[in-house]
Nucleic acid binder design. Structure first.
Length: 376
RNA sequence: CAACACCAAGUCGUCGUA
């Protein structure tokens, strides 16, 4: 049994999700270890619902399996579910606590993230890194990130990379270059981050040079370079990169679709969508966005109704389309149908009302939000 | 002897950048 599980793990580590699943199905017997392993394999695809049903199917669970589930909730922004599970745990360990730091960070609640860190019975390098990432990934906390980075008890490769990303995202290119040169060692992640640092700060030439200087490339680095060109409006370079790539996945295809879309090539974007080997919610939202932004009303509605799944992003796109075209009642109808409304659903509706001169309704809405304790 | 937490790529909202 140990051998089988190790093999499933080996497949999963190398990206052979399908083979891992196959092996899992073929195993003569399974235990908590195996089930939890499969949980984490699935969770890498961000399919929260599927992961949850797998979790529910498990014949037995231990702290590790609960932690795995909390981690999925955390990284996908399902703070409520993560917190609820965490609160009901009979016992918690470092891993459980660190996942909650991440959960708050993804939910943009920087203060709670820090409070969780402070509330932990003990901290290790990983939890310090998690806190550092909270500051690195939420805008406006660059100074805090720097402070943590300089004062943490130890640093590893991940700490350096996280700090580099913070520089890149906050426009501190010079600091980023300094971090890059000071690092004890550099990984593929480091190089990719540096490519992004240049690209996002308007130095596409340097980004390209950096990309060329890398000793190896992966699917992610190629796609990052594609996105870099896209960010800088270089359609032709993006297209060439796309054609040159040795392999492509959903992210690559969707990036290319978006490049066309941002440059006004509706037709080409649609073609990319049609040729994609597979689609997920993000790619559906992307094609919906293209049509909505060009006010292709019928086409947008058609896509909207034929989508296999929808999320708050989808509804926001449609809300924006409806209100831009003066269909405020359609917007309202859609809004009323949204389950589990959160801040991200209320905000566009509120904006829609005020933009269309329905000041009174906007005010009522704002009041309602206040009553529901969602805004201040 | 095997499973869980921290770093890089895609869509939407809010906020910034003009």
């Amino acid at each position: 049994l140990v051998c089988w599980t190790a093999m499933v793990a080996a497949y999963a580590r190398n990206g052979y999700v399908f083979q891992a699943k196959h092996l899992f199905d073929e195993m003569p017997e399974r235990n908590v270890f195996t089930w939890t392993l499969m949980l984490s394999v699935y969770s890498e695809n961000d399919c929260v619902d599927e992961t949850k049903s797998m979790f529910d199917e498990m014949p037995e669970r231990n702290l590790v399996s609960y932690n795995a589930m909390i981690s999925v909730y955390a990284s996908s922004g399902h703070l409520q579910q993560a917190k609820e599970m965490f609160d009901h745990l009979p016992e918690r360990n470092l891993v459980s606590w660190t996942s909650m730091i991440t959960a708050y960070s993804v939910y943009s609640d920087v203060n709670q993230s820090k409070e969780t860190f402070d509330a932990m019975p003990e901290q290790n390098l990983v939890s310090w890194n998690a806190l550092l990432s909270t500051y690195a990934q939420n805008p406006g906390y660059f100074e805090s990130a720097k402070l943590i980075f300089e004062n943490m008890p130890q640093r590893n490769q991940i700490s350096w990379n996280a700090m580099l990303l913070a520089c890149a995202d906050n426009g501190f290119l010079k600091d980023g270059e300094r971090i890059f040169s000071q690092m004890p060692e550099r990984t593929l992640v480091t190089w990719t981050t540096m490519v992004l640092a240049y690209a996002r700060n308007g130095h596409i030439q340097s980004a390209k040079t950096m990309f060329g200087a890398m000793s190896q490339h992966s699917l992610v680095t190629w796609t990052a370079m594609l996105a870099a060109y896209a960010d800088n409006g270089l359609l032709e370079d993006a297209r060439q990169t796309f054609l040159k790539m040795p392999e492509k996945n959903l992210v690559t295809w969707t990036s290319m679709l978006t490049v066309y879309a941002h440059n006004g090539y509706l037709e080409e974007a649609a073609q990319v969508f049609d040729h994609m080997p597979e689609r997920d919610l993000v790619s559906w939202n992307a094609i919906l966005t293209v049509n909505a932004m060009h006010n292709q009303f019928e086409q947008s509605q058609c896509i909207f109704y034929s989508m296999p799944a929808q999320d708050t992003g989808t509804w926001n796109i449609m809300l924006a389309l409806y209100t831009r075209n003066g269909h405020i009642w359609k917007a309202k109808k859609l809004f009323d149908q949204i389950p589990d409304k959160s801040l991200v659903s209320w905000t566009p509706m509120l904006a829609a009302y005020s933009r269309n001169g329905h000041t009174q309704k906007a005010l009522i809405m704002a009041e309602t939000m206040k009553l529901l304790d969602m805004a201040d």
